[in-house]
């Protein structure tokens, strides 16, 4: 195994489907032990990137290196150090959870001797140890956990997880997060896609936001928030379009306001740093007389979801 501090590196990674560019010259690197989250709307190219990095799809241009191995020229070596949990629940319904884990462990090249014991530990952690019946009788959440458990038994250096917590109850989701943090502490690298912004913010060291096959923003969730929306968000809901339009006009020129998003005609989100007093002053001056027509004022800390919405809105406007 090549000893490198970089777990993953892509060089102009590109994929076309019928002449349509779905992944467009992606350049990224992921250090060992990092959790990196790919965010983006449906069709942004996240799953296609994962399929290329896991050797399921050949890039049309560029390449990538996983643990130093080329995904095009050294597929066998790449497969020895990766595991992939697809969006769909992929295992054998007619087998038990334990049988599934042992099977996939053997497929990854592990010796059968200790696999059963290791599998039982993982099933215990994920609350599946009691279930000795066929997987087809499991609930949706249990199947999701099993889908991830397969990656845990494979115990690879790099894990590609495609929306693995979708549909999990909050308790199971937190168990999975704990497990992923343990993997990170164990210097395993995780590339994760999700639509859950809270998950991305909580788990990842870095976030990559994709749209139309391109990386449109990259950084820690803190740096992204700072760049696009600063620390605070004020949401104003009115029952009159005019109020919102007037506010938009007044506020966009303020230097401490980083971004404004008109969620719809009756709601506006203002992203700003520090200057709440100034903002209140404007609100007071401009709309004091009409304050009765403002239905809701909501001041909160900005989140990664805000960044995502700002970028999505920006792309729409383009």
């Amino acid at each position: 195994m090549k000893k490198l501090s970089i777990a993953l590196k892509t060089e102009n990674l590109t994929k076309l489907y019928d002449k349509t560019v779905v992944v467009d010259h992606i350049n990224l690197h992921v250090n060992k032990g990092e959790i990196v989250c790919l965010l983006g709307p449906n069709g942004a190219g996240k799953s296609t990137i994962l399929k290329m990095l896991t050797t399921l799809l050949k890039p049309d241009e560029g390449t990538a290196f996983v643990n130093g191995y080329d995904i095009v020229k050294e597929q066998a070596e790449v497969r020895e150090c990766i595991s992939f949990a697809p969006q769909e629940l992929v295992f054998y319904d007619e087998l038990t959870a334990l049988e599934n884990l042992v099977f996939f462990g053997i497929m990854q090249g592990k010796q059968k001797k200790n696999l059963e014991r290791e599998a039982k530990v993982i099933l215990d952690r994920l609350g599946l140890i009691e279930r000795t019946d066929k997987v087809k009788n499991f609930s949706g959440g249990m199947k999701r956990r099993l889908n991830l458990a397969i990656n845990l038994i494979m115990d690879t250096e790099v894990l590609f997880l495609d929306e693995v917590t979708a549909g999990l109850d909050p308790q199971s989701q937190h168990t999975v997060w704990e497990l992923l943090r343990e993997l990170k502490n164990n210097h395993q690298t995780i590339i994760l896609t999700t639509h859950d912004m809270n998950e991305a913010e909580t788990l990842s060291d870095r976030v990559l936001i994709l749209d139309e096959g391109k990386i449109i923003a990259e950084g820690t969730s803190e740096s992204l928030k700072e760049r696009f929306c600063d620390e605070n968000t004020l949401e104003i809901v009115s029952d009159q379009k005019m109020i919102i339009q007037e506010l938009n006009k007044q506020i966009e020129s303020l230097d401490f306001v980083k971004n404004i998003v008109n969620n719809n005609d009756l709601k506006i989100s203002i992203f700003f740093a520090g200057g709440i007093k100034n903002l209140v002053k404007i609100l007071h001056q401009e709309i004091y007389s009409d304050l009765g027509e403002i239905k809701e004022l909501n001041l909160r800390q900005s989140t990664l979801e805000d960044v995502f919405l700002i970028l999505a809105r920006r792309r729409l406007n383009q």
Binding site: A76, S83, P86, E88, G109
Partner: peptide, 10 residues
């Protein structure tokens, strides 16, 4: 999809 998952193993 198990064939796909197996194709990501060695």
């Amino acid at each position: 999809g198990t064939l796909m998952r197996l194709d990501t193993t060695p």
